[in-house]
Simulated assay, not measured.
Amino acid sequence: MIQKAAIAPMFDALVSTLTQQYLKVRQQYRHAQALWAYRWTDSNALPAPRFILFGRGRSGTTALLSMLDDVPALHCEGEVLHNYVPYPYRHVLGRSARAAAPGYGCKILSYQVQDVQNALEHPASFIDRLWNEGGFQILYLRRANLLRHALSNIRARREQFHKKKDDTPDEARALRVDPDHVMEWIRSSEALGAYEERLLEGVPHLSLTYEEHIRDPDVHQATVDEICASLGVESAPIESSYRKIAPPSVREGVANYDELVRRLRGTPYEKYLEEQD
């Protein structure tokens, strides 16, 4: 007989599996829609402007895209290449063709180009092709503090990191982390940053950082104004639909902070310990 205590985990695992399958099926359905739109839409009739928000996850891309979606001239989608599709370039163009606004933007994360979209013949030139042939402007958002980026990834895998504004606030909890695991995340992020630089080589782009353009809510409007000016569209008052609940410093956010300090001491990443976020 199955114990009652075992039913909940089994049910959760089943729901998780079904959800993943549903998301894959939905992606392929959207891919078919995108290919159809790509086939029958004149390139001159595509939204203008078109842009790609490019970077790593946990760098403020979701928050920035939600703000840009408040601009009437823009329709923004999330990670259009989150799952594998047979024709990535056509998929992105086709998704833009279905936009419900004069302008269109979406998010592409660097790991998706490197690891997910295996149908790409020349991954290193994919962003260049989107700019050069597809007419997409490129916004590049990165997080300069690699330690905080690592901790954000770890936190995201343990709890809901961003919450809607109308959700009940939760007190941010300090994380107990494995310092070696943190170091692995830092080095992985550093490697992705180098990969992004290779993909952007020779590609005109607007460079943004989480620390300068996203971290402080007081700069959000100025950030959107700057991007709209770069895209050539009229800006508008915005309000991000996400809020951060992470502690303001690494010391407050890590329960075993002293252990982490000992691991990072003498490495190039020690400088990130005392930076406020």
Rank of each mutant, 00 (worst) to 15 (best):
L206T: 02
I186D: 11
R155L: 13
S189G: 15
E184A: 11
D180C: 01
S188M: 15
H162P: 00
L208P: 06
D170W: 04
G193Y: 11
H181G: 07
R158K: 15
G202A: 06
E212A: 14
L192T: 06
K165L: 13
E211F: 09
E201L: 12
I154R: 03
R187H: 15
L199E: 10
S207K: 14
R157Y: 07
I214C: 03
E211H: 09
R215V: 01
S207R: 14
N153L: 12
H181F: 03
Q160Y: 07
D178N: 14
R176M: 10
E197N: 15
D170A: 13
E184F: 06
A174N: 08
D178M: 02
H205L: 03
S189I: 11
I186C: 12
H205A: 06
I186V: 14
W185I: 00
A194E: 15
A174I: 09
R173L: 12
T168W: 09
D180S: 11
L175I: 03
Q160L: 13
D178T: 05
R158E: 14
V177E: 08
E190N: 13
M183T: 12
H205Y: 04
A194K: 13
W185T: 01
R187S: 11
R176I: 05
S189M: 11
A191H: 11
R215W: 01
N153E: 08
N153R: 10
V182H: 08
V203I: 08
E211V: 09
I154N: 00
V203F: 06
E171P: 06
E184W: 05
H213I: 01
S207D: 11
P179C: 09
P204C: 06
K165I: 05
E190H: 14
S207H: 12
M183D: 08
E212P: 00
R155A: 15
S152M: 05
D166W: 09
L175Q: 13
Y195A: 13
L206H: 06
F161H: 01
T168V: 15
V177D: 08
D170I: 14
E201G: 04
E211D: 09
V203W: 05
D180F: 02
A194Q: 15
S152H: 08
F161P: 00
R187I: 12
R158W: 06
D180P: 00
E197H: 14
E171R: 13
D178G: 03
K164W: 00
N153W: 08
K165Q: 01
Y210Q: 04
A156N: 14
A156P: 10
E211M: 08
A191C: 01
R155H: 12
R157M: 11
